[in-house]
Write a protein that binds this DNA or RNA. Structure first.
Lengths: 148, 148
DNA sequence: TGCTCTACGCACTTTCAGGTGCCTACTTCC
DNA sequence: GGAAGTAGGCACCTGAAAGTGCGTAGAGCA
């Protein structure tokens, strides 16, 4: 029977779509940067963190130690920091360097690719700071409207 | 006792951080666009969808009906489409227009703010298409390395 | 007159990112 | 010599997002 009109057509479309969906580079990018700590790590390694010394707040990429990151991203657990750094390293966005000092120290640094991504995330941040006020305003007026 | 050095310091920092974190505009933006269907809806309304007619694939923003969106984003459930559209409408990114035709039809359209956001998402897409190959390559080589 | 379409609403369930807690092996400080 | 720091690993838990399924109210269609 060819009565499979609306629901089944959609189910079929969904199946086809999912394969494409999983491989979509934009989706992968969104999944990567929407991680709770990814953008923070990028910002910290990119020099956007809270600068306690120096003048401007532009900041330049610089290597940071694990414990330094842990302090800069106050609130992150060791597990999540490790996990985030590992996934970023896996994707070639940061490089991990082990230094055999007194207690073994590890430094993380943005790669070229990571710097590129960081620039884009900074663009996101700029957009957010420019337009999110409008969004919040809309949200407030929408919520205050009588539901109808 | 003032022995609360490492763990408790971190717990305290986390508490302070969370308040800032929740209000961070960049975080809000990421939360918004990282929704599974948000970027797709933006792309569809912005004209980036699969163009079955016409020449270039640049596309211009145009209003679309609910069912039209449902077909364009093959695989989305009605619930998620509605939910996504509502949240976008709430944030002033799309406008919803009810037309009292034979069966009541609803059209959705990007607002100015929505178009602005769509441009940025398009930037993300461009970055993804340019650099994600590198990322995938890194990922593959990382995975193939002997774990050590 | 039973089926489908439109544009949803509601309730339940699944899934997984993120969080918590406890462990390590080595070293330095007091 | 016990506490804390360094750089994590492992196992379990939770909460929110996403998915599934069913209902609806009016209308067209064979």
């Amino acid at each position: 029977m060819a009565t499979t009109t609306a629901a089944q057509r959609r189910a079929r479309a969904k199946t086809e779509y999912d394969a494409f969906f999983a491989a979509c580079p934009s989706r992968e990018l969104l999944n990567r940067i929407s991680g709770k700590w990814v953008a923070l790590v990028l910002a910290a390694l990119g020099g956007d963190g809270p600068q306690r010394s120096g003048g401007g707040c532009t900041g330049e990429p610089r290597p940071m130690r694990y414990s330094e990151l842990s302090r800069a991203l106050a609130g992150v657990s060791q597990k999540m920091l490790t996990q985030t750094l590992r996934s970023l390293e896996r994707d070639g966005l940061v490089s991990r360097t082990v230094v055999a000092t007194v207690p073994v120290t590890v430094t993380y640094e943005l790669t070229g690719l990571g710097v590129s991504l960081h620039h884009m995330v900074r663009g996101l941040k700029t957009w957010a700071e420019t337009h999110m006020d409008d969004v919040i305003a809309h949200r407030a007026s929408y919520d205050s409207e009588p539901a109808g």
